[in-house]
């Protein structure tokens, strides 16, 4: 379990992270979201012990990252952003070095290195020099270095940045599997990735936590507006006038005109009004044929944009 309590990080007068608190349970996969410079990497770096917080504390599986730094670090495997690697080492040499740094038992070292190389699909290229690998392969080498020694907590900073779609799929499926055995924290700019992989999302903006929930709940929070998209046959251009005279409808907006002469409108109603029912009955009275009615699907991206905007407006 990870407990971040009232953590603040200051650089002179600049506050990078301000009084953030959250906890992550064993086996959870948690995503950090936020615009550039929001404080995601700073928070991750504080948890890993790479940098020290100005105030507050971080407890990883019972060990304070400042007072019991070595023990806390033993619990964590960290894959930094930009995959820093020793280019002149071979894949196997690098993973072995990471195993030695993580104090893996000498007798088990060979076996653990081979297991992790297999798990990350690097066993066939273990004798290749890292500098000769593709970006995706380097990402996997970095992940292998993170996993060796079976740390209970895995922290991944932007694990799919710079990869092509095939490599992204590969890394995502690897991360998904990690969630079965480890507590995983990852930061990403790709919201679909977070919503696919993570059980919970923490959104950070301007150094503060602005939202914390499951991806589904965050999506629901933005989809609670009473909006409906309706596609109609409206040759007499009656919809606009008719809709405006219906009680409970706040606004109607033409979205597009289709090739089959149908039109799609966005209708916004007051809260608590059953828009489907009203539109269906009132449009029928005016002989407006309805082809389709649908609620807009909110995505995590919508939720993110809304939360960040609200945070910015404050």
């Amino acid at each position: 379990m990870i407990e971040v309590k009232n953590v603040t990080k200051k650089y002179g007068s600049f506050v990078a992270v301000e009084d953030i608190s959250f906890s992550i349970n064993d086996g959870e996969v948690v995503g950090f979201l936020g615009p550039n410079g929001a404080g995601k990497s700073t928070t991750m770096n504080i948890i890993t012990g790479y940098i020290e917080q100005t105030e507050g504390s971080v407890i990883v599986n019972g060990f304070d990252t400042v007072k019991k730094a070595k023990k806390a670090k033993q619990e964590i495997g960290y894959m930094p952003e930009g995959v820093p690697l020793y280019a002149d080492l071979t894949v196997k040499e690098f993973v072995t070095y990471m195993a030695e740094l993580r104090k893996v038992d000498k007798k088990l070292k060979k076996e653990k290195v081979q297991n992790v190389l297999k798990e990350t699909g690097l066993d066939t290229m273990q004798n290749k020099l890292i500098k000769n690998l593709s970006r995706g392969q380097k990402q996997r080498v970095s992940l292998a270095g993170t996993l060796v020694g079976d740390p209970k907590v895995i922290i991944l900073d932007e694990p799919t940045v710079g990869l092509d779609p095939k490599q992204i799929t590969e890394i995502r499926s690897l991360i998904k599997n990690l969630g079965k055995k480890h507590t995983v924290i990852l930061s990403s700019h790709i919201l679909s990735e977070v919503s696919q992989i993570c059980d919970r999302v923490i959104i950070i903006n301007k150094g503060k936590i602005v939202a914390e929930d499951t991806p589904d709940n965050l999506e629901k929070k933005v989809s609670n507006k009473n909006i409906i998209y309706v596609t109609v046959e409206d040759t007499e251009n009656k919809v606009d006038t008719v809709a405006k005279n219906i009680e409970g409808i706040k606004s109607i907006k033409l979205i597009k005109e289709n090739e089959d002469k149908t039109k799609q409108y966005e209708v916004s109603g007051e809260d608590g009004i059953n828009l489907n029912k009203i539109i269906f009955s009132e449009f029928a009275k005016e002989n407006i044929t309805i082809f389709e009615m649908k609620k807009p699907e909110a995505t995590l991206e919508d939720a993110f944009m809304k939360i960040i905007k609200e945070g910015g407006d404050k």
Binding site: T48, G49, Y50, K70, K71, K73, Q74, I76, Y78, P80, G82, P84, L85, Y86, M98, L101, R102, K103, G145
Partner: peptide
């Protein structure tokens, strides 16, 4: 310069 200090400084070594 290469960022590999992150590997050492986040490992359980003094």
């Amino acid at each position: 310069k290469t960022g590999t200090d992150q590997l050492i400084l986040t490992a359980p070594v003094g």
